[in-house]
């Protein structure tokens, strides 16, 4: 089972955020780089990194650390808290 720390690390690297960024700070409105192109790239990155495929509904709920985390929990990537 993966830990959710690896998701924080992925998002920090992906958006080039400061290393001490807190998970709840990672959300689309707060990150200007997080545009529609980045969204496509992020979906690719998450699918590759966690070996999952998202469905149409899911990709509309990947707009913050929390949303992505919850989606990955539902897909069995992370353990439920």
């Amino acid at each position: 089972m993966q830990t959710s720390d690896s998701l924080v690390q992925l998002l920090v690297e992906f958006f080039d955020l400061p290393a001490d960024t807190r998970p709840e700070e990672i959300a689309q409105p707060a990150i200007p780089k997080w545009d529609s192109l980045a969204m496509v790239q992020l979906i690719t990155e998450l699918q590759g990194r966690f070996g999952v495929e998202f469905d149409l509904e899911e990709i509309q709920t990947l707009r913050s650390y929390r949303e992505i985390h919850d989606t990955l929990v539902r897909k069995g990537v992370f353990a439920r808290a």
Partner: peptide
Amino acid sequence: TASLAKVR
């Protein structure tokens, strides 16, 4: 890894 972050 085929990771875009690592590519960058």
